[in-house]
């Protein structure tokens, strides 16, 4: 019996496997280059906080925009809670590089800044961080993209670039 055993891979199927692997390698390369050479990155652990005290102690006790280099570099500390972002209006100048630090004091939320690649899960106890540079004037909504209770649908804020 054993001598008759074999995988029987049809030549066409062999080529198909090669093509599939090749395709995945191309995609993986494109993703890796974008991620690690150009900076299209996903969040990575930044800091942990105590959700029970985060609204009263530390940077999220006074959420808002911090100017590091005028006109150039900013930090936005945003507190997510049911069912609003604090603050829910932010204005930055054109050319500003803004780093978002977002956390939640109650349940999970989402933070998606429309028409940018800022898209983060907001998890109580964790700090979500990503950076974006605004090259053109305009208005971007940041919306809550994770179900967070009764009024989840109205939870959003506005970022104005001018």
């Amino acid at each position: 019996m054993t001598d008759k055993q074999s995988m029987h891979i049809d030549p066409y199927e062999k080529n198909w496997i090669r093509l599939s692997i090749g395709l995945l390698v191309v995609f993986a390369t494109a993703v890796t280059v974008a991620g690690f050479a150009f900076g299209f990155q996903v969040p990575t652990p930044e800091d942990r906080v105590d959700p029970r005290t985060v609204a009263t102690e530390g940077p999220w006790a006074d959420p808002g925009l911090r100017e590091l280099v005028p006109g150039k570099k900013y930090e936005a500390y945003i507190l997510a809670q049911t069912w609003a972002f604090l603050p829910n209006e932010i204005t930055v100048p054109v050319g500003a590089e803004v780093t978002f630090y977002v956390t939640s004091k109650d349940v999970q939320h989402g933070f998606k800044l429309q028409d940018t690649n800022i898209n983060m899960q907001i998890v109580p106890g964790q700090v979500s961080k990503l950076t974006v540079t605004f090259d053109e004037p305009g208005v971007h909504n940041f919306i809550c993209t994770e179900y967070c209770g009764a009024a989840h649908a109205i939870m959003f804020g506005t970022l104005t670039v001018e």
């Binding site: 969040p43 998890v123 964790q126 979500s128």
Partner: peptide, 11 residues
């Protein structure tokens, strides 16, 4: 997009 998982492990 989770804050608490390192990017390397995600990759």
């Amino acid at each position: 997009v989770d804050p608490g998982v390192p990017a390397g492990w995600k990759f």
